[in-house]
């Protein structure tokens, strides 16, 4: 089943590749946007659920039961469930869409990497996935200054500068700053965790972009930009988060 799913992804990607005049970079960009559009309802649901959950957790009622049952975890859990029910919020409402998206995103990665097929074994494996795209093989790996099958470096003054990895770091940071809601209580555990993730994730994604094929790094950049745009369209972007604390009004 997974193989059939990958075949579908590979063939869709190559269909776009053919459509855009055999430019694989452009195909990755369009394919990423297309996938983001397809999973948009799931994302919207996730954003909605997570906001509702957050609002509930910051409500007066929540804090009251938190205080009241601080020594009785079982009772606290029961009361929590009651509150969830009353507010019509599922604690897993924001997790499920993410879990559903995960295989799609892994499938997208695999479709990109499998289509590039720069080694004999990769090409042999690709042959199992293709329906009617043999004439497109081998894929044109070049996009702008990049070889999409290799980690990207822009040569300048004798140095290889990982431009795309830097862009991935910046866009991941901006994205996480923009879409992470501010919590009134800075000492909140969740807020601390979000703060740490906002720092670690850009570095981590940057490291992946630095080490892996630039086709993936390109996907990261487009995906980050698409997320920002999506949240902006939903009115969930807090641009003030980009400003340093002392400049915030």
């Amino acid at each position: 089943m997974w193989d059939s799913f990958i075949s579908l992804m590979v063939n869709s990607l190559l269909y776009i590749y053919r459509f855009v005049g055999q430019d694989f970079g452009l195909a990755i960009i369009l394919f990423t946007i297309l996938i983001r559009l397809i999973i948009y309802p799931l994302n919207a649901q996730q954003v909605k659920s997570s906001r509702a959950l957050q609002d509930l957790q910051q409500s007066k009622k929540w804090k009251e039961i938190q205080k009241k049952y601080k020594d009785d975890k079982e009772k606290f859990a029961q009361e929590q469930m009651k509150l969830y029910k009353e507010a019509g919020v599922s604690p897993f409402g924001s997790c499920l869409p993410t879990i559903i998206q995960f295989p799609i995103i892994i499938g997208l990665y695999q479709a990109i990497i499998r289509s590039l097929a720069v080694t004999p074994l990769q090409l042999f494996n690709l042959s199992h996935h293709l329906s009617n795209s043999a004439d497109l093989i081998p894929i044109n790996n070049h996009f702008l200054w990049m070889d999409l099958s290799q980690p990207e470096r822009l040569m300048a003054f004798g140095f290889g500068i990982p431009v795309l990895a830097i862009i991935v770091v910046i866009t991941t940071y901006v994205q996480s700053k923009l879409i992470t809601p501010t919590t009134p209580n800075a000492n909140d555990q969740g807020a601390a965790m979000s703060k740490a993730m906002n720092l670690y994730m850009p570095v981590f994604m940057g490291w992946l972009a630095y080490s892996f094929s630039s086709g993936l790094a390109l996907y990261f950049v487009i995906s980050n930009l698409a997320t920002i745009l999506q949240y902006a369209l939903m009115g969930k972007v807090d641009w003030k988060n980009l400003l340093p604390k002392n400049l915030k009004v």
């Binding site: 990497i113 004999p120 099958s149 290799q150 080490s211 892996f212 993936l216």
Partner: peptide
């Protein structure tokens, strides 16, 4: 969970990236 995720993610990608110099042939 986060540490596990961060550790496993490159492995998932690595398994399909073909970035190393290993001869992916026969």
């Amino acid at each position: 969970i986060i540490i596990l995720f961060l550790s496993a993610f490159p492995l998932i990608l690595g398994a399909c990236s073909g970035r190393t110099m290993t001869a992916s042939g026969w």
